[in-house]
Nucleic acid binder design. Structure first.
Length: 116
DNA sequence: GCACTGACTCCCA
DNA sequence: ATGGGAGCCAGTG
């Protein structure tokens, strides 16, 4: 990913993590924050993604909250776009909720690798 | 530098 | 299962 844009190291770290999310998978703010090295900074992820320029092509739509839902207000433009993009990646929304057990990227490694 | 806000999360009623 | 409240850390004004 191009890092020509000068941003805070934390943000860049978060961007890197988000970019590592494989297609067809989703992750949560809390998990990404953990991977980035900021266990309690779920909000920071939100701030970072909000500041994320489109130039980087950040797959921010693969980032959802711990409930498996979109953090935006229902009916919000971004929420619509996010869901649509995920569906295009074979991520199925059931009642507006993503099954993290199945699509959760962090979920695959969280149990064994991050169990401490 | 202080105070408020937030694309969050967790716990309890 | 659902709803409400407190905690958390950074960013922004």
């Amino acid at each position: 990913m191009p890092n020509r844009i000068k941003l805070n190291p934390r943000h860049q770290k978060i961007y890197s993590i988000v970019c590592e999310i494989p297609k067809g998978c989703v992750s949560t703010y809390g998990d990404i924050a953990r991977f980035a090295g900021y266990p309690r900074c779920a909000r920071l992820v939100g701030v970072a993604l909000r500041s994320a320029p489109d130039d980087l092509n950040i797959p921010w739509h693969r980032v959802i909250n711990a409930q498996g839902k979109i953090s935006f207000s229902k009916g919000s433009d971004k929420a619509q776009i996010q869901q649509q993009r995920l569906e295009e990646e074979s991520v199925v929304f059931m009642s507006g909720v993503v099954n993290l057990r199945q699509y959760g990227w962090a979920g695959n490694i969280d149990k064994d690798l991050w169990q401490m």
